[in-house]
Simulated scan of single mutants.
Amino acid sequence: MFTGLIQGLGSLERISSERVRILCHPAGAKAILQDLALGDSVAVDGVCLTVEEILQNGFVAAASPETLRRTTLGLSEEASYVNLETSLRVGSKLGGHFVTGHVDGTGCLQEALETASSWEVTFSVSASPIGRYIVNKGSIAVNGISLTIAECDKAGSWFKVAVIPVTWAETNLQYLKPGSFVNLEGDIIGKYVEKFLGFNAPLQNHRQQAEEVITESFLAENGFM
């Protein structure tokens, strides 16, 4: 489990078809490496990877075929800037939101506009189930960064976030270009709510199911009225 608060940047190098080497950039190396142990989980651009080997300035991890198929890790041989975060320790502060490192799909940067106090960044969403978890003022992880959705369409085919200067300066968002792909993970709370309410039918049937499941008597019985 992660928080979506990036601890440093690294570079990704492909060792083989399913193994990658992550070299930490100096500014964040201590935060990533100081307590790192074999078997630990590290989020690399929001993808949870398991440490198989520890290097002086980084680590080696395996990426399964499913991970490569679903995330940006399978799109290129190397990446100069990847966001890094070690797993959440029990008792640590949760400054962002619960991020699992299990990416739902990818998106694409449309534009990034600098304002007086932040950056307004817009992403389109590739064909994947994540669209239904994109809601106004909800949480989303973009390349592992915990962000709040400022605006989106009903279908969740695009969304906009406001990025504060410190997040812009300390993550790889600043290096993205229009057309760059990013990893997206929807809020896990929304996924569980969907499951518990029985929303397992195609999207077009969700409203009908909600009407059948959530009634006045259901709300009264569960203390909402």
Rank of each mutant, 00 (worst) to 15 (best):
M225D: 09
K154I: 10
L84M: 07
F159K: 01
D45T: 10
F59Q: 03
S118W: 06
V103L: 02
A127M: 08
N222C: 05
K195F: 05
N200W: 00
E53A: 09
A29L: 11
V60S: 00
E85K: 11
S217F: 09
F199Y: 08
Q208T: 14
R14C: 05
D35I: 02
N57W: 11
S41V: 04
L49K: 09
L176M: 11
C108G: 08
S76M: 08
H206W: 10
A112S: 14
L203G: 15
T71K: 00
C24G: 08
T86A: 15
L36G: 01
S92A: 15
N143Q: 10
C152D: 01
S126F: 07
V163Q: 01
E18Q: 14
P129L: 08
I149E: 00
N172V: 04
I15Q: 13
V182N: 01
A61Y: 09
G91H: 09
S41Q: 02
G131D: 01
G223E: 00
G156Q: 05
L109S: 00
M225T: 12
Q34P: 04
I149D: 02
F224W: 14
E151S: 01
K93G: 12
V20N: 01
H206C: 04
K30D: 12
P26A: 08
G101S: 02
E52K: 13
N57A: 12
T86Y: 07
S117A: 11
Q174L: 05
H102Y: 02
G28L: 13
V193Y: 04
F98Y: 09
V51S: 00
K177L: 11
V44L: 06
R89N: 13
V161A: 03
I145Q: 00
G144T: 07
L75E: 13
S64T: 15
G138F: 04
W158I: 11
A37K: 15
V47Y: 01
K160L: 15
V163D: 06
E66R: 02
V90M: 14
A210S: 12
D40R: 06
I145G: 00
A112M: 12
N205C: 09
N136L: 07
S41M: 02
F181Q: 11
V20T: 04
A29M: 14
G186W: 13
G58Q: 15
V44K: 04
L73D: 03
R14W: 07
L33I: 05
S92G: 06
S124I: 06
V20G: 00
G96C: 15
G107L: 00
V166G: 03
I189G: 01
G28M: 09
A37Y: 08
S126R: 14
Q34C: 11
N200K: 01
V20L: 13
G223L: 06
E18T: 12
K137V: 05
G107C: 03
E185M: 01
V135H: 12
N83H: 07
G101A: 03
H102M: 03
F98W: 12
Q174G: 06
V213M: 15
N222P: 10
Y81N: 08
N172H: 06
G156K: 04
L173Q: 03
G198K: 00
W168L: 05
F196A: 15
Q204H: 10
K137A: 08
F2Y: 07
S76I: 03
G58L: 14
F218E: 05
C24V: 06
S80C: 09
G95E: 15
I54P: 01
G96I: 15
V44S: 08
R14D: 05
C24M: 07
A29P: 06
L88Y: 10
L94T: 06
V193I: 14
W168F: 10
Y175Q: 12
